[in-house]
Amino acid sequence: MKSPVICCDRLGVTLGGMKVLDALSLTVYEGDYLAVLGPNGGGKTTLLRVILGLEKPSSGNVTIFGEPPGMAPGRIGYVPQRLFFDRDFPISVREVVMMGRLPKRRLMQRYGRLDREMADEAIETVGLTRLKNSRIGTLSGGELQRTLIARALAGEPDLLLLDEPTASVDPDMKTTIYDLLDRLRERHTIVLVTHDTGTVGRSVSRVACLNCTLDWVGPSSSLGTASLESLYHHPVEVVLHNHGHDGPNEPTDSYA
């Protein structure tokens, strides 16, 4: 029996008087690769923020590894949607990735050899070894996104949370990032938030459709166009990538 990693029980979140999440119950098990889909404003990012302990639920209950949110920072690797940062900030790729080691070190304790090794390993995993000493401001969107994934990996997390990892990258880089996640799913439980329906069915194991409340959850293989259309209130093209990694994928516009 696989153990539950995230348990949301009738979770409700109200932000500024607006109900963003309502009566959401969802369990993520160890080894899952869950894609959370939904329209903008559907509460996807809020769900991640609750899991991270950045937002407090107004009703219901959430546990992460059996504890309240924010209690197990060392087991979670977080990849934010877009980093609002100053492109002139004097910091290298490696220094950013080292931040992933923060939960492993006590306050005032300096980074050690192990931290540097783990950071270098994470940088290699995402294929940025060549750029590891570059200033962060010189990276492209895709390189920056991979840096953020490396930062999450450097902390050796059990759970990876990704918020729109492909929102601001070109199609080639999208494939690279999803290939990377395919490799990572063997070692990590992954929750991926996206409105990129093209990723669904590629390799995720489960899909949750979120629009304030949970509309639908199930294995990715049974996700139909109908459920997505009811979620988005307009026709949705489900693009499937059944061919894996061999060259350009042929999109299929319906799912039988």
């Binding site: 060392g74 934010p80 940062f85 220094e95 950013v96 931040m99 306050l107």
Partner: peptide, 22 residues
């Protein structure tokens, strides 16, 4: 000197620093 890694983290990405338990 004592808080250099913490100060670097909150300066560069305060939200991530918070998520990391700082």
């Amino acid at each position: 000197w004592l808080f250099s890694k913490e100060f670097l983290a909150v300066s560069f990405d305060e939200e991530y620093a918070r998520v990391s338990g700082l």
